[in-house]
Design a protein around this nucleic acid. Sequence first.
RNA 1: GCCCUCGUAGCUCAGUGGAUAGAGCGUCUGCCUCCGGAGCAGAAGGCCACAGGUUCGAAUCCUGUCGAGGGCACCA
Length: 578
Amino acid sequence: MFRAGGMSVIDLLQGLVKEALAGAVKAGEVVLAEIPEPRLERPRDPAHGDWATNVAMQTAKAARMAPRAVAEIVARRIAGHPDIASVEVAGAGFINIRLSAHALQRVLREARERGTDFGRLDIGAGRRIQVEFVSANPVGPMHVGHGRWAALGDSMARVLAHAGWSVQREFYVNDRGVQMDVFAKSVAARYLELCGRDVEFPEEGYRGAYITEIAREILADEGEEWADAEPSAREEHFREKAYAQVLAHLQHVLHGMGVDFDIWFSERTLHIPAEDGGPSAVERALARLKDAGHLYEHEGALWFRSTAFGDDKDRVLKKADGSYTYFAADIAYHADKYDRGFDRVIDIWGADHHGYVKRMEAAVAALGHEGKLTVVIGQLVNLFRGGEVVRMSKRTGEMVTFEDLLDEVGPDAARYFFLRRSTDQALDFDIALAKEQSSDNPVYYVQYAHARICAILRKAAGADTADTSVDIAATAAALMRDDAPLHLLDSEPELALMRKLTEFPDVVEVAARQLAPNKLTRYAEDLAASFHQFYTQCRVVDPDDIELTAARLYAVDATRIALATVLGLVGVSAPDRM
RNA sequence: GCCCUCGUAGCUCAGUGGAUAGAGCGUCUGCCUCCGGAGCAGAAGGCCACAGGUUCGAAUCCUGUCGAGGGCACCA
């Protein structure tokens, strides 16, 4: 693991510990065939130091020594380094390390100098990764779960990019199949009703009011000419009109939350013949599996032997009637992804699709890309309003859509709440809380810290603290002194703030590796808390102490940059004023 | 019935095999002559669902039981 740009604190410590252990081995104090990569962590209890490593426990067995004995040897070799204030051996063999104020102060320069690149890593090494998410059927409005998956996918994409991957966002459009037909029939039925015709609404049709809206628009645009048209022609025409309208709507709503896709991939294109008239993508994918010996025929259908790759049962790809299953198209779709050169593919699916994971992994393995697909299961969202469950009826189509929610709580609160829970947890979303502008609402807590910093900067620049016309970046740049005496920052709240800032690159790494954007919101709240504590105890702008003011302004601005950066990864705005 | 995910403070949830298991909300008590009180400090609150196992060490890994949600089509 290495990081673009400067060396982070954790890298420094890891290097120190490893060097110390290697030195001990070389000197014959410890006998080890292999030096492990030491793991550093922030202890929960501050009495255990700033950082701790359990490397002595990891190696004690192989070295045939007591863990504490190994720890003592390593500790002795680290002590005395200018970045280390103290080293202690504790407990079963932990090595507790306290950083010198000097080492902590360096993170402020790192943040200031790197700006929005603070915490940027190179663990992706420029490799290409695709995140496919939302992929809602273009037959109606998105539900709230789609909104959560949109926030998840987009934030994952952001944090992966920050970790050095080359990221593409993709939306798979299921624009063929039974649902599209039902959709078309539903619109046609409403249209005929509007024309005063006596029609029976399809039993399994979509009953949402939006269907009538679409029908009404077609009627306004094209009149009643379709009422007497041949039914199949009418349905095909309506399907395309309605599809285009819904797709545009999906794009509009997602854009409203700051989620924009690079590619909208049409399922239909997988079924049309190649440009040279050759076989379709689906046919090519099946041929590939067939050549590799993974297909067989049974009872008139063509099957994929997915059980050979860990699936529960084999799956049909081509039905007895000659048509392809959805799964066949999905295999072709994934084959296409890898053909496009992605080193890794992430699919975010709703919890209702988790039964589909094994077969998809089996297919990807059969195509020769084992291990390059990660399916993330996004759990659903339960809506509450002031503690009361918001009831929805699928039958009547009455529901609170994602768009409704976005209109009511706004994109910042929506995204922040969607990301606060781990991905595999069902989410209880309280609309009343998300709208509340108080400390009960974590998104405001974090944004308030940022706005508060901006107010301090305005104050320091001699402007009114509430003057919105002040350009914060320019103000900060003008105020900061490269020679600010950072060594004055040695009180506990100041040190705590700097310690928290040193964690940021690590948070980015963990969030990217675990595909866990909820680590970002948690960190944002921790950092905001550290700042608020600092603010309460440390007066920043003090005309009687120019030097301390310069140093604290430097720390405050480093915090502003870190807050803005982490909020950027979450996809939430960092307001100058609230 | 089989498969997947989840059971952690009154509530909502963090917790990458490590030390006395954490946060927010809620409850109770304090803090504004001072840069934004949308803030800060403190108190109370736990058999990490249960039972075994793995090891120096388990909320975390394995097995079983109980409970919650979801999935089990030649649908998409």
